[in-house]
């Protein structure tokens, strides 16, 4: 099935006459919908709800971009992609933006010719083990059988970590998160490793979450963010600054509740510039003055998106941690709008 996607891409590439890929913005506006590549289903980040509407933390990025560019947050065509198909889908133009828990790495950025438009979640890889195992640190896992999702950077980090600490382990490669959960619960592996956010989401789905502990070690840096094709700077700017607008909105206290009021004009010049009541930053992006207003209005600011999809009040229950605003000791830091 995956092969056929790639072969299909090859065929399409072979048959279609050459199209230059440098005008994504005008292509999207002409088409009237934004093609957004997302996860095949990871609750909290990207998953369809009971009515088939996609929702989640990564989905919100696409909706915000669609709102900014197309004036309609619903004008998004979601394409669910596996770890294998995601890069080919983006490179071939099947999707305009890939918003799918993708870790920013050197080779993806440089060798595969993509541009990461920012970081919307700072993650790190952790381990979960059953409490009865009596393990309190990842350093005690020598000789363990570890379930790991294949096709992710976690596999490489796992290998590096055990090698660095001179420990043995046996990897059990697993295709999807739900299978990994099943294997782990059956005791076919001693520990399960993935991004800490994923561990929290997985544990939330267990029958007895209290019987499992997430070990304190975070063994890697996993900056996750949306990415676009290399070489289309206008489009990259649109995506980058849409995310920055969401982050800045939280910093300046622009929420979906008060945004209409603030839009009338405030004493803060920066808020006025973001919302388009002063200067016309949108025009510089090739959009109109209200682009950021619509983007923030779509799902709220960064903090609201976080709280609604993966925050502490949701079953996933992630704390802000590194993803707090820089003013609160986190790493979320939007460059100035001027």
């Amino acid at each position: 099935m995956k092969k056929s996607v790639i072969l299909g891409t090859l065929t399409v590439a072979a048959l279609s006459a050459g199209t230059a890929g440098a005008q994504t913005l005008s292509d999207v506006q002409e088409r009237g919908t934004l093609n957004c590549g997302v996860n095949t289903g990871l609750v909290g980040f990207a998953a369809p709800d009971a009515n088939g509407n996609w929702e989640g933390f990564d989905v919100a990025v696409c909706r915000a971009v669609a709102a900014a560019v197309l004036e309609d947050p619903q004008a998004v065509e979601f394409v669910s992609l596996t770890g294998k198909t995601r890069f080919t889908a983006l490179a071939s133009g099947e999707v305009d933006i890939l918003s799918r828990n993708t870790t920013w790495t050197f080779t993806r950025d440089v060798d595969l010719k993509f541009e990461f438009a920012g970081i919307n979640y700072y993650d790190g890889q952790g381990f979960i083990v059953p409490k009865e195992l009596g393990v309190s640190s990842a350093k005690e896992l020598s000789g363990a059988t570890v379930c790991v999702q294949t096709g992710t950077t976690t596999e490489l980090n796992l290998s590096d970590y055990f090698r660095k600490n001179n420990m043995d382990y046996e990897p059990v490669p697993i295709e999807t998160n739900s299978e990994a959960q099943q294997q782990y619960l059956a005791g076919a592996c001693d520990a399960y490793t993935t991004d800490a956010s994923g561990l929290a989401a997985t544990r939330a789905a267990f029958e007895a979450p209290g019987d499992h502990v997430i070990l304190p070690e975070i063994i890697s840096k996993e900056p996750l963010g949306p990415l676009v094709r290399h070489g289309d700077d206008e489009w990259e700017d649109v995506v980058r600054w849409t995310i920055n607008a969401l982050i800045a909105a939280e910093e300046y206290g622009i929420t979906s509740a008060n945004i209409d009021e603030l839009k009338q004009g405030t004493d803060s010049p920066e808020i006025n510039r973001i919302l388009g009541s002063a200067d016309n930053l949108g025009e510089m992006l090739g959009l109109d003055a209200d682009w950021a207003y619509r983007a923030i209005k779509a799902n709220g600011n960064y903090g609201e998106i976080f709280a609604k999809n993966i925050g502490e009040s949701t079953p996933i229950g992630l704390s802000r941690g590194l993803n707090a605003q820089w003013t609160d000791g986190g790493l979320m830091y939007a460059p100035p709008f001027r």
Binding site: A13, A14, A17, G18, G93, K113, H230
Partner: peptide, 15 residues
Amino acid sequence: WLGSNLAANLAAAGI
């Protein structure tokens, strides 16, 4: 023709 088209398109797509 298919081969050359494929090569050209892959190059255009940056692959």
